[in-house]
Design a protein around this nucleic acid. Structure first.
Lengths: 331, 331
DNA sequence: TTGAAAGCGCTAACAA
DNA sequence: TTGTTAGCGCTTTCAA
């Protein structure tokens, strides 16, 4: 049970050759005598050899792994992004190492440090704000980095995403054009994207002459959060007739709460979300939402990163993949 | 920009010492002359040094990383499990490397091979069935493995979870005792746990003399799937009065569809889920579900694994952490 | 308080 | 067709 891991040498010893021949067999079997091949194959099958990447990482300085950081793995936004990333990395023979950091800059720093200590060849980050230390580490490691989701904040090297501010502005304009008079913005423990959305909302309202009404919870977004804050909001501002939620989870929570209270949507309260998740499209009424190109974001981010890992230097600093507005039935 | 990664030697060169002194400073600063410390510190801050784990992995055969495999990162079941795992690994100084395999044995094999090639010190797997190759690799690597969720299938070394068969049996018994007469089981692209649940359901029905009615979709579970299959099920078996769904996602989808169609829950159709997710407790009516100790499962799995990584040999092969039934309002 | 040497597992380059 | 050598970056051990 405690036997140590099989090495090339172990195999070589069994078949009476040097590890070099075994190594050759693994990479270019045709360079090894057919009779030897059989012996080596047999020995490997018996011992269960697993290649060890450490020596290669050490001598080539390349791991064929890329690090992917998500704020939270329970946030459905990132499922699709991950699928997009893998659609590129998998065929290219790159491993991805996923880590998450609960929206904390400090944890992000720790995770990045850890990923870099395993010598990842590149990083995909989901945040646009980082600690000083993080920036220094990335600099020191000399690896390419792509930041996703946000195309507003100046990136470390490159950003792939969409314009959160514009998305919220357009959604707010829709509500205004439909005649809503008291539109609130519902934020949560705010990352920069949430804040960008709030800005977009505020600008649209300002242009129309309406007063902005912002609620911001210190909690992470969740369906539960959305369902709990409805009462608070109505207590403070009973007259609001529309709520722009920072994302679909919060919006769905509010929507569920409204139904429980007997509020009609959108007659009594219009609700909008962000990202266009499955759940929002299944419930009734369908949730109005900004449909974001999450798969594409992952795909393009990975493509760009691989290009740069392989030496490309003509970096486009911002790649904006746009979004669509789905009015659903909730506005 | 393309400058290569900073090494201890780079720092040593700047301060005019050997890398050995720099290495000492990093591990035991008190062994280094105060004047040297300042110089080294300055150089490190300037260059952004990141320790390189590869040499240590190479010479010690230990990475202080453990591999965690989930079938899907969009399955909410595993959020809590992950938090449980991290509650143990984080303070113990172990890194976790997350990977997912879309419920495919082949992909699982690939992921395990990759994780092992990075020399992870142990593995937490979410599946109880594996390819021959997977078993051989794990054998060859000589790393401890803990399989989670299922305590029915004989584990490679150790299983931590709950009894899916018993959970479904107990839930079925509840429905029977409430007088339901046509209880169906709704499965999906079935892993062994899904199949274990079906067995539990069938046994309970058999004991009561009722006929079992099983629907099984070839798709992965999702809210959408649940919402789409309701019509099919009612078309084939219009008389069913209760549906035991393989998990909460499917159950929530069915529930949403029922509401759209104007079916009353539980009067026209009773619905039950599995795992007790947040969403099920927020919607109306509250979803009946088996509440599983997911955080605890992660915690115990990680504890056991670390113990074994550090040499413990008294392995309890099955650790059953139980479950609770929440009747909610949907039965 | 600092340094020198050796070695972890593998493969590129060269040799036989 | 197979073998030998050297070296990737770091730490352990021994020496100064």
């Amino acid at each position: 049970m405690k036997s140590k891991r099989t090495s090339l040498q172990d195999i070589a010893d069994i078949v009476g050759m040097t590890k070099m021949t075994v190594s050759r067999y693994l990479k270019n079997p045709e360079l090894v005598a057919p009779s030897s091949r059989v012996q080596i194959e047999t020995a490997i099958n018996k011992l269960g050899y697993i290649p060890n990447r450490a020596p290669n990482i050490l001598s080539k300085g390349k791991s064929y792994a890329i690090g992917v950081l998500f704020p939270s793995i329970s946030n459905h936004v990132f499922d699709e992004v991950l699928r997009g990333i893998e659609s590129i990395t998998e065929p290219a023979g790159y491993q991805i190492m996923i880590a998450h950091y609960a929206y904390s800059e400090q944890l992000e720093e720790k995770r990045i440090s850890s990923l870099l200590s395993f010598h990842v060849d590149g990083l995909i980050l989901s945040e646009s704000v980082h600690t000083q230390n993080t920036l220094r580490m990335i600099q020191g490691a000399g690896v390419p980095v792509t930041e996703i989701m946000d195309t507003r904040t100046p990136p470390i090297q490159q950003a792939v995403g969409f314009d959160n501010e514009d998305a919220a502005r357009q959604m707010t304009d829709r509500l205004l054009s439909k005649g809503y008079q008291n539109i609130a913005y519902i934020g949560a423990k705010g990352d920069v994207r949430d804040l960008a959305r709030q800005r977009g909302y505020e600008q649209a309202l300002k242009k129309s002459g309406q007063e902005s009404i912002v609620f911001r919870s210190p909690e992470f977004t969740s369906i539960r959060l959305g369902s709990e804050i409805l009462d608070d909001i109505l207590a403070i501002r009973p007259k609001i007739d529309a709520a722009i939620c920072t994302n679909d989870d919060v919006a769905i929570g509010m929507l569920v709460s409204c139904k429980k209270k007997g509020l009609r949507i959108p007659e009594d309260l219009a609700i909008t979300g962000m990202h266009g998740h499955e759940m929002g499209q299944l419930i009734s009424p369908n949730l109005a939402s900004v449909i974001t190109p999450r798969f594409k974001i992952g795909q393009v981010a990975a493509q760009q990163l691989l290009l740069r890992i392989n030496g490309a230097s003509n970096i486009e600093p911002f790649i904006d993949l746009g979004f669509e507005i789905n009015e659903g039935e909730s506005i």
